[in-house]
Design a protein around this nucleic acid. Structure first.
Lengths: 137, 137
DNA sequence: CTGCCTCCAGACAACTTGTCTTAGAGCAAC
DNA sequence: GTTGCTCTAAGACAAGTTGTCTGGAGGCAG
């Protein structure tokens, strides 16, 4: 009954953040970022986290070099989407609309944010059949 | 390092859903909804889930009757808010804005939804300080 | 009294999560 | 070639979570 898409853990997320920053990195590089002057055990920890991320499909491992290189197969924004969808699944019967209205109602919008939002809405109005790239609910 | 607000589990969520539906319920009533013709072990399961929900503060237990009555201390919408905030914390540096724009960009809005959204934005424009209950980022 | 229903306390296995240990391979410099 | 470094690989480990279940004690109705 675990969440269907095998979620990313906190420690794993830290690794993902590095990958999102650098685009591609070796274990050593990630380790240096996450645990400056960390010992070999930290190295192994990062290694395990990457192994699990690869198993979950969130990371691609390039084995062509001696030193494997890792790359995120999912963007931060994609992960946000997954989480939002999973949240909607659990609490809103799958519909994203309640999340949207909740945010607009709860969050105090700055004038700039209001303007941006309006622009986005206009945009989706102009091209209502444009949504080929992403699924919608 | 567990999520700060002690999240609600899947099985616990099922119990919450019943409470949100009925407003107030005994273990037996919840049990009948969740496990029709379930045995005494299911009863104990629900009991334990309620105990944990009470410990986490999501449920109030009225002990004044012989048969305790349970009531959710948090609405579905509040939980949505908590989850959204936690999501923003993890992936957006605490800002809810990326979630908002993600939703507007991703989700294909029906004309009606667009109208509602616009109305909500107008509203927040009229009363920018009306939402004082929670901090916003 | 008997039976039924409730509450309470805690056991339990399965799984997750973050960390760490150990072993072995490949390569570079001495 | 041997030494030493870095890398991969495999898995052990404790702690915590989660969902389920067992057993006992008390109260009340028939």
């Amino acid at each position: 009954m675990a969440r269907s898409y095998r979620d990313i853990t906190d420690a794993e997320l830290a690794v993902m953040q590095v990958l999102w920053d650098r685009g591609e990195a070796s274990i050593r590089q990630i380790c240096d970022v996450l645990y400056p002057n960390g010992g070999p055990s930290h190295y192994a920890t990062v290694q395990k986290l990457l192994e699990r991320l690869e198993a979950k499909g969130f990371v691609h491992r390039d084995r062509s070099l001696q030193v494997h290189l890792f790359r995120a197969t999912i963007g931060r924004d994609d992960l946000i989407g997954l989480r939002l969808r999973s949240l909607a699944e659990q609490l809103c019967g799958g519909s994203l609309t309640p999340l949207l209205t909740h945010l607009v109602k709860t969050k105090a919008l700055s004038p700039q944010e209001r303007a941006e939002l309006r622009a986005l809405i206009e945009q989706s109005e102009d091209a209502p059949r444009r949504r080929g790239s992403r699924k919608q609910t």
